[in-house]
């Protein structure tokens, strides 16, 4: 377990170090590649702002209205039987459809209940190990004009439900 924790701590520095070594010994001017990529990242982050403004305004309104509390309290019993904290329900509902909406809900959640609470950790694992199922499958298949996607949607949803359940299960074991 110690080794795993060390690997987790060193993952980011190791990648940065690797990029540094490439820049030093790589032959061509890799700092230029860095700047090019960084500019793209900057454009992506800034380009997301208008979307996030709309979504976070809506989410903030949703929380103030008492709707989240209501839905959470209704679903609390059945979900806690499965080991899923009820705070993450709004996140679960938007995760299959939109990456930016779920990121917005995730940051709203951890800002509210703190990044170290159990629900936040579960949400973080779900965010890191699932993706926008509906969005991806519809984009991929519509790009080649496929109308019958056979078992793609049911299977992707089964995997996602398993992922949600498994994320909470792993968090329960890992962060004791």
């Amino acid at each position: 377990m110690r080794i795993l924790e060390y690997i987790a701590l060193m993952a980011v520095p190791a990648v940065v170090l690797f990029a540094g070594v490439v820049m030093l010994f790589g032959g061509k001017n890799y700092f230029e590649s860095f700047i090019k990529g960084a500019k793209e990242g900057f454009a992506t982050a800034v380009g997301l702002l208008p979307t996030l403004v709309a979504l976070l305004a809506a989410i903030s309104m949703l929380r103030a209205s008492g709707a989240i509390e209501f839905i959470s309290s209704v679903l609390k019993e059945p979900l806690s039987a499965l080991g899923i904290p009820s705070e993450i329900i709004p996140l679960l509902l938007t995760r299959p459809f939109s990456g930016s909406a779920s990121s917005a809900l995730f940051s709203d959640l951890i800002g509210n209940i703190g990044p170290d609470s159990f629900a936040s950790l579960c949400a973080a694992v779900i965010m890191g190990s699932s993706d926008t199922v509906v969005y991806i499958i519809s984009i991929y298949f519509s790009s080649v004009n496929i109308k019958k996607t056979r078992y793609a949607f049911p299977l992707a949803f089964v995997v996602m439900l398993f992922c949600i359940f498994f994320s909470c299960f792993i968090c329960r074991i890992w962060f004791k």
Binding site: A19, Y30, G37, A38, G41, F42, T44, A45
Partner: peptide, 13 residues
């Protein structure tokens, strides 16, 4: 996002 996109671009290239 700037830093990480930059570093990933270095790895990619």
């Amino acid at each position: 996002m700037c830093l990480w996109s930059g570093i990933l671009n270095v790895l990619k290239e």
